[in-house]
Nucleic acid binder design. Structure first.
Lengths: 183, 183
DNA sequence: GTCTATATGGGGATAGAC
DNA sequence: GTCTATCCCCATATAGAC
């Protein structure tokens, strides 16, 4: 059986994704993980400490996956488009971006740090690849720093639209629209 | 002096914007509005009723402003770009989009309805104007339904990036990148 | 319509035994 | 390391007087 610490992190990740950090009670994490009260406070002294460990794990994994996707061999613009069009469940939302409007996360220096780092690192990774595309002349127009944020914003905004309307279509359309402009 | 009901709505709007509905207590609304406990529950039977009235008011105002901006005389693409580049405080976030990740709002049929309506109506308004641009040949490429969501997603994603990084620049860049592709 | 007083439940821990 | 018991505070109202 998995150890308590890991089961706590797995449960917390699930709940932070579904309800956000502010609205997730330690009790809910206990119930979902099947771990006892004493264990939680043994491994994580506070709710904030648990949230921080959970965010660190998800940010690390997400950045690894994104940088891997963006480093795919082949034409640079093609790699960016592949990253952009990767299947995403818009209605469930972004495991990291959703915290941007959670005051429990953003009002804490400790908790907002991994969120900020995620987007800054992602911006750099996308911009690098767009720069390569620019060099080979395959990128239509616009500053690569600007376009990197347009790519990230389309994904994050796609999540917002899909969640707000309850309809994945709006995220798919947003991405398709940007791809048609990029090609 | 303004009547209690209006002062309650003004205070609630401010707090829902800054902290979201789930994290805003009736008590906080009382304190900010300066109104007494009895008054709140006289005008609004529950926290949900107060949130609904607040959302309705902000959605109505926002849609009025957006449709007015999008209906500006002159070239259609120019009106869409003007709407896209209108000054927005990214770090404060979108008064409506922020609720897409608030489970108190989205788990309630009553509260999610105005949020959904906002984005659906906005989508229609942007698409209409993009269709006009397409007819005059000023729109480069891509399906207008797709591009309408790309426009909305760039704005909403811009808010997410600005809040997550604490830096307005990321929102400005995202918008500028899209504008450079649209022209 | 507005006030103060009171009630109930859950959130976020702490204590101390095993 | 893990368990059960307990604690205090605040969120969300409800009651009834003025």
């Amino acid at each position: 059986m998995t150890d308590s610490r890991t089961r706590l992190l797995d449960a917390a990740e699930e709940l932070l994704w579904a309800r956000g950090a502010g609205s997730t009670s330690p009790r809910a994490v206990l119930d979902l993980s099947g771990v006892g009260q004493g264990s939680l406070y043994h491994h994580f002294p506070t709710k904030t400490a648990l949230a921080r460990a959970t965010l660190d794990r998800v940010v690390t994994r997400s950045l690894e996956r994104a940088t891997r996707d963006l480093a795919e061999p082949g034409p640079a613009l093609q790699a960016v488009i592949a990253y952009l069009t990767r299947p995403r469940d818009g209605v469930k939302g972004c495991k990291i971006g959703r915290h941007a409007s959670d005051h429990f996360v953003m009002d804490s220096e400790d908790l907002s740090e991994p969120v900020r780092r995620y987007f800054l690192d992602l911006h750099t990774a996308v911009r690098e690849r767009l720069s390569s595309a620019r060099e080979t002349g395959s990128l239509p127009r616009g500053d690569v720093d600007d376009l990197a944020d347009t790519v990230l914003a389309t994904i994050q905004g796609g999540y917002v639209l899909a969640r707000a309307t309850g309809d994945q279509q709006h995220m798919d359309r947003a991405v398709r629209g940007l791809v048609s402009l990029l090609r």
